[in-house]
Design a protein around this nucleic acid. Structure first.
Lengths: 165, 165
DNA sequence: GTTAGAGTGATATATTATAACTAATAACGC
DNA sequence: GCGTTATTAGTTATAATATATCACTCTAAC
Protein backbone atom coordinates (compact mmCIF):
# COMPACT_ATOMS: atom_id res chain seq x y z
CA UNK A 1 0.00 0.00 0.00
CA UNK A 2 1.08 3.55 -0.56
CA UNK A 3 0.94 6.30 1.99
CA UNK A 4 -2.66 7.03 2.81
CA UNK A 5 -2.85 10.72 3.56
CA UNK A 6 -1.41 11.87 0.28
CA UNK A 7 -2.95 15.08 -1.05
CA UNK A 8 -5.70 14.55 -3.54
CA UNK A 9 -4.10 14.58 -6.91
CA UNK A 10 -5.68 17.57 -8.51
CA UNK A 11 -3.39 16.99 -11.42
CA UNK A 12 -5.27 13.95 -12.51
CA UNK A 13 -7.42 15.76 -14.95
CA UNK A 14 -4.61 17.80 -16.36
CA UNK A 15 -2.49 14.69 -16.69
CA UNK A 16 -5.14 13.36 -18.96
CA UNK A 17 -4.45 16.54 -20.90
CA UNK A 18 -6.71 16.88 -23.84
CA UNK A 19 -7.04 13.23 -24.29
CA UNK A 20 -10.30 13.04 -26.17
CA UNK A 21 -8.95 15.49 -28.68
CA UNK A 22 -5.74 13.55 -28.76
CA UNK A 23 -7.59 10.37 -29.71
CA UNK A 24 -9.66 12.18 -32.28
CA UNK A 25 -6.56 13.57 -33.88
CA UNK A 26 -5.04 10.11 -34.07
CA UNK A 27 -8.17 8.69 -35.64
CA UNK A 28 -8.40 11.48 -38.16
CA UNK A 29 -4.77 11.05 -39.12
CA UNK A 30 -5.27 7.31 -39.49
CA UNK A 31 -8.20 7.91 -41.77
CA UNK A 32 -6.20 10.21 -43.96
CA UNK A 33 -3.28 7.87 -44.02
CA UNK A 34 -5.37 4.88 -45.02
CA UNK A 35 -7.08 6.89 -47.70
CA UNK A 36 -3.71 7.92 -49.08
CA UNK A 37 -2.65 4.31 -49.32
CA UNK A 38 -5.94 3.10 -50.73
CA UNK A 39 -6.68 1.09 -47.61
CA UNK A 40 -10.01 0.87 -45.88
CA UNK A 41 -10.24 2.30 -42.40
CA UNK A 42 -13.05 0.04 -41.30
CA UNK A 43 -15.12 0.13 -38.12
CA UNK A 44 -13.06 -2.62 -36.59
CA UNK A 45 -9.80 -0.88 -37.34
CA UNK A 46 -11.11 2.37 -35.98
CA UNK A 47 -12.31 0.71 -32.79
CA UNK A 48 -9.04 -1.08 -32.19
CA UNK A 49 -6.99 2.04 -32.82
CA UNK A 50 -9.24 4.00 -30.52
CA UNK A 51 -8.79 1.42 -27.78
CA UNK A 52 -5.03 1.46 -28.22
CA UNK A 53 -5.11 5.22 -27.83
CA UNK A 54 -7.52 5.23 -24.93
CA UNK A 55 -4.70 5.23 -22.40
CA UNK A 56 -1.20 6.63 -22.63
CA UNK A 57 0.04 3.23 -21.66
CA UNK A 58 1.00 0.20 -23.67
CA UNK A 59 -2.07 -1.90 -24.37
CA UNK A 60 -1.86 -5.68 -24.24
CA UNK A 61 -3.54 -7.63 -27.01
CA UNK A 62 -5.77 -9.62 -24.70
CA UNK A 63 -6.77 -6.50 -22.85
CA UNK A 64 -7.82 -4.99 -26.14
CA UNK A 65 -9.63 -8.23 -26.89
CA UNK A 66 -11.66 -7.87 -23.72
CA UNK A 67 -12.45 -4.23 -24.32
CA UNK A 68 -13.34 -4.91 -27.91
CA UNK A 69 -15.68 -7.72 -26.88
CA UNK A 70 -17.64 -5.14 -24.90
CA UNK A 71 -18.43 -3.20 -28.03
CA UNK A 72 -18.83 -5.85 -30.69
CA UNK A 73 -19.45 -9.55 -31.07
CA UNK A 74 -17.42 -12.33 -32.61
CA UNK A 75 -14.11 -11.05 -31.33
CA UNK A 76 -11.32 -13.59 -31.13
CA UNK A 77 -7.56 -13.25 -30.66
CA UNK A 78 -7.16 -13.39 -34.41
CA UNK A 79 -9.36 -10.35 -34.75
CA UNK A 80 -7.14 -8.29 -32.55
CA UNK A 81 -3.77 -9.48 -33.81
CA UNK A 82 -4.82 -9.15 -37.42
CA UNK A 83 -5.99 -5.63 -36.87
CA UNK A 84 -2.92 -4.66 -34.90
CA UNK A 85 -0.79 -6.04 -37.73
CA UNK A 86 -2.66 -3.90 -40.18
CA UNK A 87 -2.19 -0.81 -38.04
CA UNK A 88 1.47 -1.58 -37.49
CA UNK A 89 2.16 -1.98 -41.17
CA UNK A 90 0.73 1.46 -41.77
CA UNK A 91 2.77 2.94 -38.94
CA UNK A 92 -0.30 3.72 -36.87
CA UNK A 93 0.73 1.69 -33.88
CA UNK A 94 4.02 0.32 -32.61
CA UNK A 95 4.63 -2.89 -30.78
CA UNK A 96 6.68 -2.59 -27.61
CA UNK A 97 8.68 -5.77 -27.75
CA UNK A 98 9.88 -5.73 -24.19
CA UNK A 99 6.31 -5.56 -22.91
CA UNK A 100 4.40 -7.46 -25.57
CA UNK A 101 2.13 -4.49 -25.86
CA UNK A 102 1.05 -1.84 -28.31
CA UNK A 103 0.95 1.93 -28.37
CA UNK A 104 -0.47 4.43 -30.79
CA UNK A 105 2.12 6.11 -32.91
CA UNK A 106 2.43 9.80 -32.34
CA UNK A 107 4.13 10.58 -35.65
CA UNK A 108 2.29 8.44 -38.14
CA UNK A 109 3.29 10.65 -41.01
CA UNK A 110 6.94 9.90 -40.90
CA UNK A 111 8.41 6.58 -41.92
CA UNK A 112 10.16 5.49 -38.80
CA UNK A 113 10.80 2.88 -36.16
CA UNK A 114 9.74 4.14 -32.80
CA UNK A 115 12.09 4.89 -29.95
CA UNK A 116 10.54 4.74 -26.53
CA UNK A 117 10.94 5.86 -22.96
CA UNK A 118 8.90 3.61 -20.70
CA UNK A 119 8.34 4.39 -17.04
CA UNK A 120 8.59 1.20 -15.02
CA UNK A 121 6.62 2.80 -12.24
CA UNK A 122 3.61 4.38 -13.89
CA UNK A 123 3.85 2.65 -17.28
CA UNK A 124 3.54 5.91 -19.09
CA UNK A 125 5.23 5.68 -22.42
CA UNK A 126 6.75 8.38 -24.53
CA UNK A 127 7.82 8.09 -28.10
CA UNK A 128 10.92 10.14 -28.61
CA UNK A 129 11.40 11.83 -31.90
CA UNK A 130 15.09 12.21 -32.05
CA UNK A 131 16.39 11.78 -35.52
CA UNK A 132 19.91 11.75 -34.16
CA UNK A 133 19.28 8.39 -32.53
CA UNK A 134 18.70 6.68 -35.85
CA UNK A 135 21.69 8.44 -37.32
CA UNK A 136 23.88 7.27 -34.45
CA UNK A 137 22.64 3.73 -34.68
CA UNK A 138 23.21 3.73 -38.42
CA UNK A 139 26.75 4.80 -37.88
CA UNK A 140 27.39 2.14 -35.24
CA UNK A 141 25.93 -0.49 -37.57
CA UNK A 142 28.03 0.70 -40.47
CA UNK A 143 31.13 0.06 -38.42
CA UNK A 144 30.13 -3.58 -38.59
CA UNK A 145 28.97 -3.29 -42.20
CA UNK A 146 25.48 -4.13 -41.07
CA UNK A 147 22.40 -2.84 -42.88
CA UNK A 148 19.61 -1.92 -40.47
CA UNK A 149 16.02 -2.52 -41.47
CA UNK A 150 14.15 -2.04 -38.24
CA UNK A 151 15.19 -0.53 -34.96
CA UNK A 152 13.89 -1.61 -31.61
CA UNK A 153 14.86 0.95 -29.00
CA UNK A 154 13.05 0.70 -25.68
CA UNK A 155 14.45 2.50 -22.68
CA UNK A 156 12.98 1.40 -19.41
CA UNK A 157 13.36 3.59 -16.37
CA UNK A 158 11.68 6.39 -14.46
CA UNK A 159 9.83 9.32 -15.89
CA UNK A 160 10.33 12.66 -14.22
CA UNK A 161 7.22 12.37 -12.09
CA UNK A 162 8.23 8.98 -10.74
CA UNK A 163 11.79 9.85 -9.80
CA UNK A 164 12.54 10.18 -6.11
CA UNK A 165 13.51 13.69 -5.11
CA UNK B 1 14.78 -33.20 -45.56
CA UNK B 2 17.20 -30.90 -47.31
CA UNK B 3 18.59 -31.27 -50.81
CA UNK B 4 20.77 -34.31 -51.01
CA UNK B 5 23.47 -33.62 -53.56
CA UNK B 6 24.59 -30.26 -52.30
CA UNK B 7 28.34 -29.71 -52.27
CA UNK B 8 29.89 -30.31 -48.93
CA UNK B 9 30.16 -26.94 -47.30
CA UNK B 10 33.82 -26.64 -46.56
CA UNK B 11 33.11 -23.34 -44.89
CA UNK B 12 31.15 -24.99 -42.18
CA UNK B 13 34.13 -25.54 -40.01
CA UNK B 14 35.54 -22.10 -40.48
CA UNK B 15 32.17 -20.47 -39.86
CA UNK B 16 32.14 -22.26 -36.59
CA UNK B 17 35.43 -20.43 -36.02
CA UNK B 18 36.95 -21.58 -32.83
CA UNK B 19 33.66 -22.29 -31.35
CA UNK B 20 34.54 -24.96 -28.83
CA UNK B 21 37.14 -22.67 -27.38
CA UNK B 22 34.63 -19.86 -27.50
CA UNK B 23 32.19 -21.86 -25.39
CA UNK B 24 34.88 -22.92 -22.99
CA UNK B 25 35.90 -19.33 -22.48
CA UNK B 26 32.33 -18.34 -21.77
CA UNK B 27 31.92 -21.15 -19.25
CA UNK B 28 35.16 -20.31 -17.54
CA UNK B 29 34.20 -16.66 -17.27
CA UNK B 30 30.82 -17.60 -15.89
CA UNK B 31 32.46 -19.74 -13.27
CA UNK B 32 34.70 -16.91 -12.19
CA UNK B 33 31.88 -14.45 -12.16
CA UNK B 34 29.65 -16.66 -10.04
CA UNK B 35 32.48 -17.31 -7.63
CA UNK B 36 33.06 -13.58 -7.30
CA UNK B 37 29.44 -13.05 -6.40
CA UNK B 38 29.25 -16.01 -4.08
CA UNK B 39 26.82 -17.81 -6.36
CA UNK B 40 26.92 -21.46 -7.24
CA UNK B 41 27.61 -22.36 -10.83
CA UNK B 42 25.80 -25.67 -10.71
CA UNK B 43 25.66 -28.43 -13.29
CA UNK B 44 22.29 -27.26 -14.50
CA UNK B 45 23.45 -23.71 -14.91
CA UNK B 46 26.54 -24.82 -16.73
CA UNK B 47 24.54 -27.02 -19.07
CA UNK B 48 22.04 -24.29 -19.89
CA UNK B 49 24.73 -21.72 -20.51
CA UNK B 50 26.59 -24.18 -22.69
CA UNK B 51 23.46 -24.80 -24.74
CA UNK B 52 22.83 -21.09 -25.13
CA UNK B 53 26.36 -20.70 -26.42
CA UNK B 54 26.25 -23.74 -28.64
CA UNK B 55 25.16 -21.70 -31.62
CA UNK B 56 25.81 -18.09 -32.51
CA UNK B 57 22.12 -17.64 -32.82
CA UNK B 58 19.44 -16.65 -30.38
CA UNK B 59 18.21 -19.73 -28.54
CA UNK B 60 14.52 -20.13 -27.77
CA UNK B 61 13.57 -21.33 -24.33
CA UNK B 62 11.65 -24.36 -25.55
CA UNK B 63 14.47 -25.30 -27.85
CA UNK B 64 16.80 -25.24 -24.88
CA UNK B 65 14.23 -27.28 -23.01
CA UNK B 66 14.32 -29.97 -25.65
CA UNK B 67 18.10 -30.02 -25.83
CA UNK B 68 18.37 -30.07 -22.09
CA UNK B 69 15.96 -32.99 -21.88
CA UNK B 70 18.40 -34.97 -23.96
CA UNK B 71 21.07 -34.66 -21.33
CA UNK B 72 19.16 -34.74 -18.07
CA UNK B 73 15.82 -35.79 -16.66
CA UNK B 74 13.08 -33.88 -14.93
CA UNK B 75 13.35 -30.85 -17.15
CA UNK B 76 10.31 -28.60 -17.31
CA UNK B 77 9.76 -25.08 -18.63
CA UNK B 78 10.33 -23.78 -15.12
CA UNK B 79 13.76 -25.34 -15.09
CA UNK B 80 14.82 -23.48 -18.16
CA UNK B 81 13.26 -20.12 -17.38
CA UNK B 82 14.55 -20.16 -13.83
CA UNK B 83 18.04 -20.89 -14.97
CA UNK B 84 17.92 -18.30 -17.73
CA UNK B 85 16.75 -15.75 -15.16
CA UNK B 86 19.68 -16.59 -12.99
CA UNK B 87 22.11 -16.24 -15.87
CA UNK B 88 20.51 -12.99 -16.98
CA UNK B 89 20.76 -11.45 -13.54
CA UNK B 90 24.46 -12.17 -13.54
CA UNK B 91 24.87 -10.70 -17.00
CA UNK B 92 25.83 -14.05 -18.50
CA UNK B 93 23.05 -14.11 -21.04
CA UNK B 94 20.82 -11.49 -22.61
CA UNK B 95 17.24 -11.86 -23.65
CA UNK B 96 16.45 -10.65 -27.15
CA UNK B 97 13.03 -9.16 -26.63
CA UNK B 98 12.09 -8.90 -30.27
CA UNK B 99 12.70 -12.62 -30.77
CA UNK B 100 11.82 -14.07 -27.38
CA UNK B 101 15.19 -15.73 -27.38
CA UNK B 102 18.45 -15.75 -25.50
CA UNK B 103 22.10 -15.28 -26.36
CA UNK B 104 25.28 -15.64 -24.39
CA UNK B 105 26.79 -12.37 -23.36
CA UNK B 106 30.16 -11.67 -24.88
CA UNK B 107 31.25 -9.10 -22.32
CA UNK B 108 30.10 -10.55 -19.02
CA UNK B 109 32.62 -8.53 -17.09
CA UNK B 110 31.12 -5.17 -17.79
CA UNK B 111 27.89 -3.99 -16.30
CA UNK B 112 25.80 -3.27 -19.33
CA UNK B 113 22.64 -3.70 -21.29
CA UNK B 114 23.34 -5.39 -24.55
CA UNK B 115 23.00 -3.75 -27.94
CA UNK B 116 22.44 -6.12 -30.80
CA UNK B 117 22.69 -6.47 -34.53
CA UNK B 118 20.47 -9.33 -35.67
CA UNK B 119 20.56 -10.67 -39.20
CA UNK B 120 17.06 -11.41 -40.36
CA UNK B 121 18.38 -13.76 -42.99
CA UNK B 122 20.86 -16.01 -41.19
CA UNK B 123 19.87 -15.17 -37.60
CA UNK B 124 23.43 -14.52 -36.65
CA UNK B 125 23.57 -12.08 -33.81
CA UNK B 126 26.28 -9.72 -32.81
CA UNK B 127 26.53 -7.82 -29.58
CA UNK B 128 27.97 -4.43 -30.28
CA UNK B 129 30.16 -2.89 -27.70
CA UNK B 130 29.81 0.74 -28.41
CA UNK B 131 29.87 2.81 -25.29
CA UNK B 132 28.82 5.81 -27.31
CA UNK B 133 25.41 4.31 -27.88
CA UNK B 134 24.60 4.33 -24.20
CA UNK B 135 25.97 7.82 -23.87
CA UNK B 136 23.80 9.02 -26.74
CA UNK B 137 20.72 7.37 -25.37
CA UNK B 138 21.39 8.85 -21.96
CA UNK B 139 21.59 12.27 -23.48
CA UNK B 140 18.37 11.83 -25.43
CA UNK B 141 16.64 10.62 -22.28
CA UNK B 142 17.94 13.54 -20.28
CA UNK B 143 16.29 15.90 -22.70
CA UNK B 144 13.05 14.44 -21.40
CA UNK B 145 14.33 14.27 -17.83
CA UNK B 146 13.99 10.53 -17.96
CA UNK B 147 16.24 8.23 -15.93
CA UNK B 148 17.16 5.09 -17.86
CA UNK B 149 17.54 1.81 -16.00
CA UNK B 150 17.69 -0.72 -18.79
CA UNK B 151 18.23 -0.33 -22.49
CA UNK B 152 16.75 -2.58 -25.12
CA UNK B 153 18.45 -1.93 -28.43
CA UNK B 154 17.90 -4.53 -31.11
CA UNK B 155 18.71 -3.68 -34.70
CA UNK B 156 17.25 -6.08 -37.21
CA UNK B 157 18.65 -6.16 -40.71
CA UNK B 158 21.25 -7.84 -42.86
CA UNK B 159 24.74 -8.83 -41.85
CA UNK B 160 27.50 -8.30 -44.36
CA UNK B 161 27.39 -11.86 -45.61
CA UNK B 162 23.68 -11.74 -46.29
CA UNK B 163 23.59 -8.43 -48.13
CA UNK B 164 22.96 -8.60 -51.87
CA UNK B 165 25.92 -7.43 -53.92
C1' DG C 1 -26.17 -7.93 -60.34
C1' DT C 2 -21.91 -10.54 -60.66
C1' DT C 3 -17.67 -11.27 -59.18
C1' DA C 4 -13.04 -10.99 -57.27
C1' DG C 5 -10.71 -9.64 -53.42
C1' DA C 6 -10.48 -7.83 -49.00
C1' DG C 7 -12.19 -8.17 -44.50
C1' DT C 8 -14.04 -10.63 -40.71
C1' DG C 9 -15.79 -14.70 -38.05
C1' DA C 10 -15.00 -19.11 -36.05
C1' DT C 11 -12.39 -22.92 -34.37
C1' DA C 12 -8.34 -25.03 -33.16
C1' DT C 13 -3.79 -25.09 -31.71
C1' DA C 14 1.02 -23.51 -31.08
C1' DT C 15 4.27 -20.92 -28.41
C1' DT C 16 5.94 -18.48 -24.50
C1' DA C 17 5.93 -17.90 -19.53
C1' DT C 18 4.69 -18.18 -14.56
C1' DA C 19 2.68 -19.95 -10.08
C1' DA C 20 2.78 -22.80 -6.29
C1' DC C 21 4.24 -26.48 -3.92
C1' DT C 22 7.54 -30.43 -2.83
C1' DA C 23 11.97 -32.77 -2.67
C1' DA C 24 16.89 -32.80 -2.83
C1' DT C 25 21.21 -30.83 -1.90
C1' DA C 26 24.85 -27.79 -0.22
C1' DA C 27 26.63 -24.60 3.35
C1' DC C 28 27.14 -23.50 7.96
C1' DG C 29 27.59 -23.49 12.90
C1' DC C 30 28.29 -26.46 16.31
C1' DG D 1 29.87 -35.78 11.67
C1' DC D 2 25.13 -33.82 12.66
C1' DG D 3 21.24 -31.20 12.47
C1' DT D 4 19.61 -26.72 10.78
C1' DT D 5 18.79 -23.58 7.20
C1' DA D 6 18.81 -21.71 2.72
C1' DT D 7 19.37 -22.57 -1.93
C1' DT D 8 18.55 -25.28 -5.85
C1' DA D 9 15.92 -28.28 -8.55
C1' DG D 10 11.74 -31.21 -9.59
C1' DT D 11 6.73 -31.55 -10.34
C1' DT D 12 2.27 -30.24 -11.70
C1' DA D 13 -0.79 -27.09 -13.32
C1' DT D 14 -2.13 -23.15 -15.72
C1' DA D 15 -1.75 -18.44 -17.61
C1' DA D 16 -0.52 -15.37 -21.29
C1' DT D 17 0.76 -14.55 -25.93
C1' DA D 18 0.30 -15.63 -30.78
C1' DT D 19 -0.69 -18.10 -35.21
C1' DA D 20 -2.97 -21.30 -38.67
C1' DT D 21 -6.73 -22.42 -41.34
C1' DC D 22 -10.99 -22.41 -43.37
C1' DA D 23 -15.49 -20.42 -44.11
C1' DC D 24 -18.51 -16.69 -44.62
C1' DT D 25 -19.58 -11.69 -45.67
C1' DC D 26 -19.16 -7.44 -47.42
C1' DT D 27 -17.75 -4.05 -50.75
C1' DA D 28 -15.80 -1.90 -54.76
C1' DA D 29 -15.46 -2.26 -59.53
C1' DC D 30 -16.97 -3.71 -63.46
Amino acid sequence: MSKTSQPKRKTERSLKHNHDACIQTALARAEVRCAQEGERFTGLRRQVLELVWSEHKPAKAYHLLKKLSDIRSGVAPTTVYRTLDFLQERGLVHKIESLNAYVGCSQPNAEHSGHFLICENCSEIREIENSKISAWLERAAQDEEFKIKTETVELLGLCIRCQPA
